[in-house]
Amino acid sequence: MAEVTLLTTRGLCRDFDGLRAVDDVDFTLETGEIHAIIGPNGAGKSTFVSLLSGRLRPTAGRVIFDGRDVTRLPAHARVRLGIAYTFQITNIYTSMSVAENIALAAQSRLSPGLFGRGGVGPRITEATQAAARAVGLTERLNARAGDLAYGHQRLLEIAMGLALSPRLLILDEPTQGLSDAEIAGVTEVVRQLASRATILLIEHNMDVVMALARRITVLDRGAILAQGTPEEIVADPAVQAAYLGDGA
C-alpha cells in the first residue's frame, strides 16, 4: 500500500505549557480518500491539523508528505508542496473583492514570486473563475468579500483552498454555523473536490461525516482512540463510550 500513502505522521506530539494537546499520534492518509477526523471538543483536532499544515511546530515526532519529511518546513513551503488549509474561523481578505481573494490563491500556484514570470494573468483569471464556479460564487466575483453573507464566506474560503490546486486539502469544520441547506451545498462541493484532491476533514456534524468520509479517525485527549470505516467507528464500543455516548 506504500505507493498510495500521501501523508504519515510518526510519534507526533505537541505541548502547550506542559499540557499535551497532541500525544504520540501515528497517522496515515491515503491518496484520493476523504478522511474525517472527529472527536469531542478539546480532543486536539485543530492542533493536530495545524501540525500538518505547519501553522504549529511539533514538540516531537515527524510529518512525512509524499515520501518527504516536511516536519521542519514552514507553512508557506508546505502549501507550495500541495498541503492547503482552510480556516475554521473564516479568514479572508475582507476589503478585497471575491475575485481578488481567489486570485491570490491562484497566483500562489501560477506565479509564486514577487518578480515572477509575466503573461500568467489570463491563467490566473481562468483559475479564479474555475474555483468560483466550483463553489457557486460566479455571480459574486466582484462583491467585496467582507460584504458576503456568512455562508458565502465559507464557500469563498473553500474556493481559495481549491484555487491552490492542492494535493491535500485540509478543511477545518467547513460547515460550522451554516444552515441545513448550506450544509447540503458544502457537502456536495466537497464530494466533487474529492476527484481532484485528497481531503482531510475535521467535522462535528456526523451526518456530513457519514455522507462523505471513506475512513474516520477518532481523536480523544490528543491521542488516536479508533480508526476505520464509518461502519466500524459507529460500532466501536470505545468510541461510543468516549464520544458518541456522553457527547449526545
Partner: peptide, 21 residues
C-alpha cells in the same frame, strides 16, 4: 498582481502565509 501581494500582507499576513507566500 504584485501590489495585491503587499496588500494581502497588510490586511491579513496569517492568511497570506497559508496561501503559500
Amino acid at each position: 498582481r504584485r501590489g495585491r501581494l503587499f496588500a494581502a500582507v497588510r490586511e491579513n499576513a496569517g492568511r497570506t502565509e497559508m496561501l503559500g507566500f
